[in-house]
Amino acid sequence: MSIELLIEEERKSIKQIEDARTKADKKIADSQKEAQKILDQAIKKEFILKYLQKEEEKVNEEAKKVLNKYKKDVTKIKQIPSNKIQKTVDRIIDEVLKI
C-alpha cells in the first residue's frame, strides 16, 4: 500500500513537471510570436509615415528659421542709410564725368 502511494505521488510529480514544460514551451512560443509582430510593425508603412510627418514638421520649422534669417538680411539691405547711397551716387557720377 505504501509503495503504491509513493508510485502515485511520483506519477503526479512527473505529470506536474510535464505540465510545467508544456506551459514553458507555450510561453516561449508566445513570446516569439509577439517578437515577430513587433518586427513586422517596425516596417509598417503607417508607422513610418507618421514618423516622417513628425520629422518633416521639425525640418519645416528649421527652414522657417533659415528664411527668417534671410528676411532680416533683406531688411538691412532695404534700410541702407541715405548718406551711403548718396556717396555711391557721387562716386558713380565722378566716374561718368571722368574724361
Binding site: 514544460r21 514551451d25 510561453k27 516561449i28 513570446s31 516569439q32
Partner: peptide, 19 residues
C-alpha cells in the same frame, strides 16, 4: 516545475527585448 517556468519567463523576456 518552478525552475522550468522561471527559465521560460526569462527566455521569453530575452526574446521580446531583442525584438
Amino acid at each position: 516545475s518552478k525552475k522550468i517556468i522561471s527559465n521560460a519567463d526569462g527566455e521569453a523576456q530575452k526574446v521580446l527585448h531583442a525584438a
